[in-house]
Design a protein around this nucleic acid. Structure first.
Lengths: 234, 234
DNA sequence: ACAAAAGTGTTCGATATACACCCATGT
DNA sequence: ACATGGGTGTATATCGAACACTTTTGT
């Protein structure tokens, strides 16, 4: 899918612009599952405005790239990772919210497997993972964008299989349940959870098992599909 | 909520642009409930490209207005209506899909009460309501945008009360059921439907009734709230 | 032997679905 | 009187929620 145009501007070539257009940026909410909380990747701003404050990673859209591509590029620059789930969230287009001038921001969110080593882009002073309970103040309206992303993710895990993007290739059912609990923010009953997961065809046993400490080994599973699909889970 | 900026471009003022940004347009899928099908408002293009073809109404975002405001303005220009439900859909940002140049389009959808008299904007050759079964070929990638809107609406009526925007102030339960059937594309059982609607607190009787033809008069209802709320309906 | 996490079934209440007849009116 | 849409209840199946003990291992 893609761009378009306007009935009301039917004959106007954008090349013959009557006025300047806003700049277009992308901002990305990059999430991963920590031990007991979701974690979000933030970068510390070097320049004004909001110098020294933490912000969502992002950047301007280049002239010849799609908005989706710009988001994927920024994500790669920050994390270097592949195997991610990246989805457009919402477009924030109020004038005057970026003190430097008019910027329309297309927000995305990404779900990653491991906190991986951070390829801190060198134009940011620092880049770090923050647990949601323990966030610093955010620059611009990035707190609102983050809230929006969390709402979307919490809804979407209930009717899709996108949690696959937060888990490694193989995992135990307890680990899978833990990811749901972290995202949904509530405890789930172990037996009901396993009954539900078993009744859907989301995962299959690999045959292997994991031996941890002094207890019974856990069977390992993998996702049958690592493409996003619609499945009613909760 | 609103715009933002980028960690990777932390110090760059948009005023000091290194390159041109894409134009920003809005396109609106304007829907209403016809007798036996949803109807969408299309405008016939005057100029190239796609001259003479039908397209979604839309236009470019002015420099000092928010993207939401631009959408509301275009909607008003086409229909003159108030009392609408207007929601952002998705941003389409592939380069090269508008033959005239780079245009990023923020798509919206609107739900209207009656097909009202059309205030056909004078820069379009014509504006008309089309039933979904009976669409002409659409310009640009507007068919994809329309599909996206329909998917969103069909999902959203199942867990919100947004159908209020498609109905007049007072209505009968049969009319309400008809709207659901038109959107969902399937027949609903009358008794189960009424049981469900009655168990939620969505509507209340006005006390009045409507006398139509040679049959028992129908009680009239109104929505308790005409603000969008989350309610699991189906 | 014991500590620690893995694994496994049943009961109960609530909700969704299927289904058919009488009511009030206008002509 | 009859044709037309308005209005109503019950029985069954399905699904979600609550709940506790046995198994396998490492030390």
């Amino acid at each position: 899918m893609t761009s378009s145009s306007a009935g009301t501007a039917a004959g106007d070539a954008p090349a013959a612009r009557r006025h300047r257009y806003p700049a277009i940026a992308v901002d990305i909410v990059i999430l991963t599952a920590g031990d007991d909380d979701l974690q979000v990747l933030l970068v510390q701003r070097r320049g004004e405005p909001f110098a020294g404050q933490w912000a969502l990673p992002g950047g301007f859209v280049e002239e010849d790239e799609s908005v989706d591509t710009a988001a994927a590029r920024e994500l790669r620059e920050e994390t270097g990772v592949s195997e991610v789930y990246l989805e457009q969230l919402y477009t924030f287009g109020e004038p005057g919210r970026d003190p430097r001038g008019r910027v329309v921001s297309v927000a995305y969110y990404a779900l990653l497997r491991q906190p991986a080593a951070l390829a801190a882009a060198d134009d940011a002073a620092d880049a770090r993972w923050f647990p949601l309970r323990g966030l610093p103040p955010l620059a611009f309206d990035h707190a609102a964008i983050l809230d929006y992303a969390l709402t979307r993710v919490r809804n979407k895990v209930e009717y899709t299989n996108i949690v696959y993007s937060l888990l490694p290739e193989t995992f135990t059912l307890t680990e899978l349940q833990r990811v749901y609990e972290i995202i949904l923010g509530r405890a789930l009953d172990k037996r009901n959870f396993r009954k539900k997961i078993g009744s859907l065809d989301l995962v299959e046993p690999t045959g292997g098992e994991r031996r941890d400490g002094a207890h019974r080994p856990a069977k390992l599973y993998r996702f049958r599909s690592r493409e996003p699909i619609i499945v009613e889970i909760f």
